[in-house]
Structure formats: C-alpha cells, structure tokens
C-alpha cells in the first residue's frame, strides 16, 4: 500500500517541479537479513522510493549500514534509518544535512523543504548570519531532536539545515527522539524541539535565526566533544 495518498503525491509533485539542480537522497538502512534492528527502516525506504518517483531530478540511493560501513563512515552516519540530502549531478556535494528516523508527520514537510533547498543551493539566511558563518574555523555538529507531532519542530530543523548548507563546517541532524530513545536519554530530551550544539550547548524550543547563530558562535569557543 502506498504511504502517500494521491492528493499528497500531487502536492509533492508540484512542489518538486520547482527543483533546479538534481538532488540525491542517500539512505542507510539495515541489511536484507536484518542484522541491525531498525524500527522504521522499511517504512522510511518505502517513503523515499515514493517521493523519489515524483521528480526526475531526484535520485535515491539505498545502502546497507553494515555491508557499506565504510561509506556510512565517510558520511559520518552512525545510526539508522538515516537520510543524507546531497547535491547531485556533475558536482555532487554533501552539505551535512541529515535526517535520522522516519520523516513523518510534520517532518515530512521538512524533507521536501530540504530537497528544494539543496536543489536551489541557496540557504536564504540573513546577511549577518552569512558574515558570522565566515568566522567558523572548526567543525560544528547540530542535533535537533523532534517528534512527528510537533508543529514547532520543522522550523528548528530547517534552520539547522540551512546553516549546514551555508557552511561546510556545519553538520545538522534531525533526530526523531522516539526512535532513538538512548539519545533522547543521553541528551535529557523531555521536550521538543531541543537543539544540541557540539554536545555542550542545549537550546529549548524553536528560536529565531539570530539567537541560534549567537549560540553557535559561542559553541565555537567550547571544545568539541567526541562524536
């Protein structure tokens, strides 16, 4: 059974019609024989297949987290289901945009926005933000914890993803908290969205761009914990 009904398919098709450059979704899932337990891997894969079929500018590559471990490591992907939204075509590029857990509910819109953004190759951030990002000189890891029923969450995720697109130093993950309870525990997530920058800075709620960037620049001065 299709996950997306005809109406949604049509909406997504129309949205993706605005794509400029080609985009590739690189998905990591469990092996055929289920070596690693993964609650929503099959559904995530089915969803991405349906979405990828809606635009000829959108490609999907599905890899096995165990068998293709070197590739996963190259992209620094450490859990599944994982989706990296990559620039494709003659000059492919990994911007560091990641979605961990199935992009369902409100986060489905985030996936589509991510695709469009990467396709544009333009983050549309404030000029002050772009200036600040130029001062980065070390890796920054942003994790945004979400649930699919959280209307405020896509804004926090998209902002983090925009920053990842704009700066090669930044990797930004959406993490669906209920699928990764050990991480929700580790980072003491009891409310979403919760943004964790470099393991050291925790931000509650969806904050404006300027606030997040200020925190991000502050994180720069704190040591980066082990990923």
């Amino acid at each position: 059974m299709a996950l997306l009904n005809a109406t949604i398919q049509q909406q997504v098709r129309e949205a993706l019609a605005g794509m400029e450059r080609p985009v590739k979704l690189l998905m990591f899932t469990q092996g055929a024989n289920g070596v690693v337990e993964c609650a929503f891997c099959a559904e995530t894969r089915a969803l991405l297949e349906e979405v990828a079929a809606l635009s000829d500018k959108l490609a999907l590559e599905v890899r096995d987290f165990v068998a293709d471990a070197p590739l996963a490591e190259l992209h620094r992907i450490d859990k599944i289901p994982a989706v990296a939204v990559l620039g494709d075509g003659p000059q492919p590029k990994d911007y560091g945009i990641r979605l961990y857990g199935i992009p369902s509910g409100y986060e489905f819109g985030t996936l589509i926005e991510d695709i469009l953004m990467v396709s544009r190759g333009e983050a549309e951030l404030q000029p002050q933000t772009m200036d600040a990002l130029k001062r980065l000189d070390a890796p920054v890891h942003i994790q945004v914890f979400v649930t699919p029923t959280c209307p405020y969450c896509p804004r926090a995720v998209l902002l983090a993803h925009k920053l990842a697109l704009a700066s090669d130093w930044i990797t930004a993950d959406m993490v669906e908290a209920t699928e990764f309870p050990h991480l929700a525990n580790k980072y003491e997530v009891y409310g979403v969205p919760r943004t964790v920058i470099n393991e050291t800075i925790h931000i509650e709620g969806a904050v404006p761009e300027a606030t997040l960037v200020a925190q991000l620049m502050a994180a720069r001065d704190k040591p980066m914990a082990q990923r």
Partner: peptide, 16 residues
C-alpha cells in the same frame, strides 16, 4: 506510532 504524511499543515514558505 501512526505514520502520517501531509504537506497541508506544514511549514511551506516557498511551496504554497
């Protein structure tokens, strides 16, 4: 978890 995929009530600044 119920799986739902809708674009309707989404943050769709540029799409709509």
């Amino acid at each position: 978890m119920d799986l739902e995929f809708a674009l309707e009530a989404q943050d769709r600044q540029d799409v709509g």
